[in-house]
Write a protein that binds this DNA or RNA. Structure first.
Lengths: 112, 112
DNA sequence: TCAACTATACAACAATATTTGAAATATTGA
DNA sequence: TCAATATTTCAAATATTGTTGTATAGTTGA
């Protein structure tokens, strides 16, 4: 995970439509849905959906496999944890003393 | 966490600059940094940084407190897990059978 | 009060993203 | 092969976002 990939993923999720698509595909994991089913559920014009699916696929957020005349999309479920790890890397590293609260015997960043 | 808030957070992280700011503040949790320190580390013009800090604050990704003439910014560390939970809500709910892989005795979405 | 410093607000321009409609490609089944 | 279906591609119009410069507001210390 590098900065460019991370921003691409976040950009993918920064649109209400793409967020809806991703969450729909999460609910339908691991089988996924074909493009037409997604368009029907979210009530989107097929060409607009195609635009967003392409962006999400390019970001690696979803996978696509050909299935006859259909395109089946699946959520890439493990990418999220990788992203979180990237975001919270070296958490509190520059200020470990303040992070370690002796009265609680816990680190402030452990909840992530 | 609702859709609007989630997209706002993702939008906040969809810029390389804001991603840098957030990760910098994560490293400097829980004390945080004042705006001038952030600008110095990331080598940004103060007015541009202010623009991005405002967006991040509005999204709830960071907090700000007045400190004399300085503004101290801190990363909102727990927001991430809330966001993940929102993203992965009802994971596999629509296809639980396929998700439960009997040969592995595990659910496909447990890695999140 | 004054000057220096920190930070934000606003306006204008450039760059980018999104939506829409029309057309193209590819697959299926009769 | 032909018609129907599924999906993508392209170009144009629209909307949004990012950057920069300038101006403004508040704080500090002499």
């Amino acid at each position: 995970m590098d900065k460019l990939h991370a921003t691409k993923i976040f950009e993918s999720l920064a649109s209400g439509i793409r967020l809806d698509v991703f969450r729909l595909l999460v609910r339908h994991a691991p089988t996924g849905l074909v493009a037409g089913e997604i368009a029907a559920v979210l009530e989107l014009p097929p060409n607009n959906l195609s635009f967003h699916l392409k962006a999400m696929t390019h970001a690696g957020l979803i996978n696509v496999t050909q299935e006859g005349r259909y395109q089946r999309y699946r959520a890439h479920l493990t990418l999220m944890q990788t992203l979180i790890d990237y975001l919270t890397a070296e958490c509190c590293a520059a200020d470990a003393e303040a992070c370690f609260d002796t009265s609680k015997a816990s680190k402030c960043c452990e909840s992530i």
